[in-house]
Design a protein around this nucleic acid. Sequence first.
DNA 1: GCTGAAATCACACATTA
DNA 2: TAATGTGTGATTTCAGC
Lengths: 172, 172
Amino acid sequence: MIYSIITNSMKSITLDETDLHLLDALQRDASQSNQALAERFHISPPTCLRRVRRLREGGWIAAEVALVDPAHAGPLLTAVVEVSLDRQDADSLAAFEQRVVPDEAVQQCYRVSPGPDFVLIVTVGDMAGYQALAQRLFTSDANVRNVKAFFSLARAKFSTRLPLAGLVAPPG
Amino acid sequence: MIYSIITNSMKSITLDETDLHLLDALQRDASQSNQALAERFHISPPTCLRRVRRLREGGWIAAEVALVDPAHAGPLLTAVVEVSLDRQDADSLAAFEQRVVPDEAVQQCYRVSPGPDFVLIVTVGDMAGYQALAQRLFTSDANVRNVKAFFSLARAKFSTRLPLAGLVAPPG
DNA sequence: GCTGAAATCACACATTA
DNA sequence: TAATGTGTGATTTCAGC
C-alpha cells in the first residue's frame, strides 16, 4: 500500500520529454486542439489528453489565459516602480506585499535584492491614474521610505514563456 | 458602398459592454467553453462565438497561452535588469532592443524614462546562466554604459490581466 | 438567434511493455 | 501494474438560414 502511494507520487512529479514538449507548445499557444497536439508529438489523442490533464492538475500549468494587446486596449500607462521600505523585517515585507498585491493596477510584484525591496510593474489609464495609485499604495504607507517610478515608453517584449530547456530528464 | 465599409470598420473597432466582459473573462480563464461564456453573459452560443472570434481577428486578443508555474518548472532565477546606454539616439535604442528581444531568457523589455534606458525582466536557470546572459547581451555591447541587476527572491504577483475598466463605450 | 452537420472531446475497454 | 492505443457516446463547435 505504502509503496504504491510512493510510486504514484514519484510518477506524478516527473515529466518526460514528451510532457515538456507539450508544456512548451501550450506555453506558446493554448488554443491548439488536442488532436493537433497529439499528432504533432506522435501520440494518440487520449494519451495527449491525459498528459495535458496531468500537467494541469499537477500544477505545472497554473492557468490558461488570453493575452490582450495593450495597443488595442485603449490608452494605458505602464510603469516600473522600485519601492524601498524603512523596516525590512519579514513581517513588514509581508505586510507591504499583502497590501499591494490585491490592487488591480499591480500587474507584477517582485521581492528583490540587492537594491530596492520591491519592484512592481503597474498599469493604469493615465498619469492621473498613477498619481492615485501612488497615493493609495505608497504615500499612505508610513513604512515606505523611497519610491522610484520609470514610465514605459514602449513594451518591446512581453513573453510568458518560461525557458524549459535543460529540464528534460535524462532518458532511461 | 462606401457607407457600408465605413460602418463595418466602425463596428470592428468598437467594443460594447458585452465584448469587454468577454475579453475580461478570457483574460482570467481562456479554457472556458464557448457555451459557458454564452450563458454567463446571457447571449446565444453562436453570438458568443462570433464575438470572441472578432476579438481574436481584430487583434484585441494577441494570444492564448498556458501560464507555467515557475515553482513547478524547476529551479529558475529571475532578475530585474536596468540598462543604460552611452548613445541614446533612436538608432542605438532600436539596435539594442533588436538584439535583446530575440533572446529566450528575456521575458520582458521596457523602454523607459526617466532613469535607465531599458528595464528587462530576465529568467535563467541559475547564477551561471545569468552570467552567460550578461556576457552575451551587455558586456559584449560597447554601447552599454551601465547595468544594474536586482534578483528576484519571490514573485509575489504575476498577472497578465489588463484593467479594462473605463473602456466601456457609453451605451447609445 | 435558432437549427443543422461536422468535428471534437471524454470516457470505458482491451492491449502491451 | 501502470501507461498506451482503439472504439464508442456525448458535447461542442461552426456553418447555414
